[in-house]
């Protein structure tokens, strides 16, 4: 599992980790039972404080996305919570849409144009009309 962090991003690093693990679970890249890297490996690889990784893992455990087994390591739960699997995608998209709308507004790009561009993007770059 590849996790990267963006040091320029003001979002705290532990949230970046939580989010990336969640994305991979929802996208199906990580299925129930797959191992998560150890705190030490992740801390060393990302050059960040092990306690930060630990904090991210504890958060994921609290939300029922991973289970930590002492001495063995952490794994993705077999059955992640239903509401998370359904809701997470929407939460992420909501945030992105907010950004998009804000940018479009400040640059005076009309709503119609934005919607059209979204349609085009969904069609793999081809204009349907």
């Amino acid at each position: 599992m590849i996790i990267t962090i963006d040091e320029q991003n003001p979002v705290p690093i532990f949230r970046q980790i939580v989010r990336q693990v969640k994305m991979r679970v929802v996208s199906g890249e990580l299925v129930g039972g797959s191992p998560v890297p150890s705190i030490r490996d992740l801390a060393v690889r990302l050059s960040i404080n092990p306690n930060t990784v630990g904090k991210a893992f504890r958060e994921l455990e609290k939300e029922g996305i991973i289970v930590m087994k002492r001495g063995v390591g952490a794994f993705i739960t077999k059955n992640p919570p239903e509401e998370f699997m359904k809701g997470f995608g929407n939460t992420v998209i909501d945030g992105k849409i907010q950004d998009l709308v804000q940018t479009a507004r400040s640059l005076n790009v009309p709503k119609k144009t934005v919607m059209k561009k979204i349609d085009i993007a969904y069609n793999g770059g081809k204009d349907e009309q």
Binding site: E7, R40, V44, I48, N49
Partner: peptide, 29 residues
């Protein structure tokens, strides 16, 4: 990286005095 690996493995406490603040921004508690 070596420092982090021993900290994670043995819960070593570290006090690091440095002027290169950005370099350690993600390291300290």
């Amino acid at each position: 990286k070596n420092l982090l690996s021993i900290v994670a493995e043995r819960e070593t406490t570290v006090i690091i005095a440095t002027h290169l603040i950005n370099e350690i921004a993600n390291l300290f508690d």
